[in-house]
């Protein structure tokens, strides 16, 4: 009987996490289709925060990544992966944005420029 109660309790935890994650997705959707009262940057920040929150919920409740776990390798390697992932992703975007800025062209202009160079046979 105790086991059955424990089982129900754990099922409910999954359900709560599911509903929260779903709510966050719906919120992101609502923001995305609403009339644009946000700038691009602030929209991105809000929506990424929602994503980060959902990441936390899914990692903790679906992937069972809590600090109670005895072998901490999963949590440690997960944290380390996220750390390096952000370095590489953010670093790449930083580098490439600076490149584009220094080229002084929009992507379409860049495209036309590359096309014309290519036609010259470089």
């Amino acid at each position: 009987m105790q086991k059955a109660r424990e089982y129900r309790r754990q099922q409910l935890r999954y359900a709560y996490a599911y509903l929260l994650a779903g709510a966050l997705s719906i919120a992101t959707y609502a923001l995305a289709v609403s009339a644009s009262t946000f700038t691009d940057t602030s929209f991105a920040v809000i929506v990424l925060c929602a994503a980060a929150l959902q990441l936390y919920i899914q990692s903790r409740y679906f992937l069972h990544l809590d600090d109670k776990e005895a072998p901490r390798w999963r949590l440690l390697s997960y944290a380390f992966t996220w750390f390096t992932l952000l370095i590489i992703a953010v670093g790449s975007i930083w580098i490439m944005n600076h490149l584009n800025y220094n080229m002084g062209m929009s992507p379409d202009q860049m495209d036309q420029y590359m096309n014309s160079q290519s036609l010259k046979g470089f």
Binding site: S92, M96, L99, P107, D108, M110, D111, M114, N115, Q117, S118
Partner: peptide
């Protein structure tokens, strides 16, 4: 590619 919007520097 150099055409179609590609970015070799990436």
């Amino acid at each position: 590619t150099s055409m179609g919007g590609g970015n070799p520097m990436m």
